[in-house]
């Protein structure tokens, strides 16, 4: 499970929202799925659907009966994410990957509590208005506020603005 898929996903989702796409896809892997679900919990994307190389019909995104993943079709599966827009502006505007394969950035609970309140902690700058952060913890991929609730720190994946 490499961090590079998260880095790629951040760039791709930034570009997709800048291009005002409604539905875009990520490679189907566990890390991407966990991040997508965390983004969905944070209200930044509209839907997460696993489907084949062709997008599922948009009207059936939420009620889509996914084909069971088998060894025969797993290589062609993709995660289809519905992007959100509000007042003609993307809800998820900019995703900045923090950790990369060559440099993993972790944050303790103490760091996170400072950063979430807008203060700098070490090298990590405080969060701005409307900004959020996603972490890979031993409780799964969480938003920073979920991690603070659970009082856990972890690997900083990305910051979303």
């Amino acid at each position: 499970m490499g961090i590079h898929s998260i880095t790629n996903a951040c760039s791709h989702l930034s570009n997709a929202s800048r291009a005002r796409l409604g539905l875009t896809s990520l490679p189907n892997n566990k890390y991407n799925l966990l991040l997508s679900l965390a983004l969905h919990r944070a209200g930044l994307i509209a839907s997460v659907t696993r489907a084949g190389p062709h997008p599922p019909p948009p009207e059936a995104l939420l009620s889509f009966e996914a084909e069971p993943v088998t060894t025969a079709n797993v290589a062609t599966r993709r995660l289809w994410l519905g992007l959100k827009y509000w007042n003609n502006e993307p809800v998820m505007r900019k995703l900045t990957a923090v950790s990369k394969s060559s440099r993993l950035v972790t944050a303790s609970y103490r760091d996170l509590s400072r950063v979430a309140r807008g203060f700098q902690s070490g090298q990590m700058k405080g969060m701005n208005l409307g900004e959020t952060m996603f972490l890979a913890t031993d409780r799964g991929v969480l938003e920073v506020r979920e991690a603070l609730e659970k009082k856990v720190g972890g690997l900083v994946l990305c910051r979303v603005n």
């Binding site: 209200g43 509000w86 007042n87």
Partner: peptide, 13 residues
């Protein structure tokens, strides 16, 4: 300037 109310409505929070 960003509007927190609008951001919250966009995310459904």
């Amino acid at each position: 300037q960003p509007d927190p109310e609008e951001i919250a409505r966009g995310r459904g929070k």
